[in-house]
Amino acid sequence: MPVNILFSARPELWPEYEPLMRQYLTDAGLDFHLAKDIPADQVDYIVYAPNGGVQDFTPFSQLKAVLSLWAGVEKISGNETLTVPLARMVDGGLTQGMTEWVVGHVLRYHLGMDCHITQQDGTWTPDAPPLASQRTVCILGLGALGEAAALALAALNFHVIGWSRTAKDIPGVTCLHGQDGLREALSQAEIVVLLLPDTPATENILNADTLALLPKGAQIVNPGRGPLIDDDALLHALNSGQIGHATLDVFRIEPLPVNHPYWVHPNVTVTPHIASETRPVTAAQVICENIRRGEAGEPFLHLVDRDLGY
């Protein structure tokens, strides 16, 4: 019997993923049926995105796993109808794209590029930045994306502090964890990068109290999730000068409403959720490898802990 694989994501993605998945599944030696429409009681695997249409998993009586095309799973992890393993997307293309975006904006802040871009009025101010080794960058979140960004920045000789909810050990990175560790990390951070998942435990992790811990004038880079930041608290900290600048790629409501204060704030850079995205050529490989593993009785990659939400 063929393995039945339902593709449940935006229809316009199908022409990109379908040939790639067919090739990878064939190379894996699998007998399969891949389609956008399969009777629910015959589906073995769902290639899933929250905007693909499937919300109720109850009819999928022989389902073996749900394989998400998204790195974030907050829109599905709490779904009580989902009782089979859920794997999130961790792939090389997404990780590389995120690392490039983070390093680019950290270097932008470190080198003071905004000043040189806007100050083209003949003013000659030879004020060189410190070396990277004299600059402390804090990465909140040390999952696959956070670890990759931390290692890249450490390779440039930044003093990198990484924080996570549980203990981690990353060469060249000062790893802290827990609430005491968070306070210690933020108190030293000249630049903060948020790469945490969106869970009840991480919502508003940057709030009035934690923003006050940062050195005055610290800068924030958020390509993680919008709810990680208390927007009102950040705007107050920007207006007071406690925070020097914030570059924000993700928001509670997307697209960011045209009347949102972030658009016009002189110390905020808005980017339209472009820090990284799932690349079909690499994502399809991850999905097909998990299907191969499922059929071979091997452990799935990148399984979500439903209690933690990531």
Score class of each variant (00 low, 15 high):
Gly97Glu: 05
Ser68Leu: 01
Val102Asn: 02
Gly72Tyr: 03
Gln96Ile: 06
Glu74Val: 06
Ala71Tyr: 08
Leu107Cys: 13
Met98Asn: 04
Ala71Gly: 15
Leu94His: 06
Trp70Phe: 09
Trp101Lys: 07
Leu82Phe: 03
Cys115Met: 03
Pro85Phe: 07
Val102Ala: 04
Ile76Phe: 04
Val84Ala: 14
Glu100Phe: 10
Thr81Gly: 15
Leu69Tyr: 03
Gly78Gln: 07
Ala132Glu: 01
Gln96Ser: 14
Glu74Asn: 12
Gln96Trp: 06
Asp121Ile: 01
Gly97Gln: 08
Tyr109Val: 00
Glu74Trp: 01
Val106Met: 07
Lys75Trp: 02
His116Ile: 00
Thr95Phe: 02
His110Tyr: 03
Leu94Tyr: 08
Ala132Gln: 02
Ala71Ile: 03
Thr83Cys: 13
Asp91Asn: 11
Lys75Cys: 03
Thr123Gly: 13
Val106Asp: 06
Asp121Cys: 07
Gly92Gln: 10
Gly104Ala: 13
His105Glu: 10
Thr95Leu: 06
Ser77Gly: 12
Pro130Phe: 05
Pro129Gly: 07
Ala128Trp: 00
Gly92Phe: 10
Tyr109Met: 03
Ala87Arg: 01
Ala128Phe: 01
His116Ala: 02
Asn79Cys: 11
Gln119Arg: 08
Pro130Gly: 09
Asp127Ser: 13
Gln120Arg: 14
His110Phe: 04
Asp127Ala: 15
Leu86Cys: 12
Pro130Arg: 05
Val73Cys: 14
Leu94Ala: 14
His110Leu: 02
Gly93Ile: 05
Trp70Thr: 14
Ser77Asp: 12
Val73Trp: 00
Gly93Val: 02
Gln119Cys: 05
Ser77Val: 12
Gly78Met: 06
Glu74Asp: 15
Glu74Thr: 04
Pro85Gln: 12
Trp101Asp: 10
Val84Met: 10
Gly78Glu: 07
Val90Lys: 00
Glu100Cys: 12
Leu69Cys: 11
Val106Gly: 13
Gln119Met: 07
Glu100Ala: 15
Trp101Ala: 14
Thr125Ala: 12
Thr123Ala: 15
Pro130Met: 06
Leu131Ile: 03
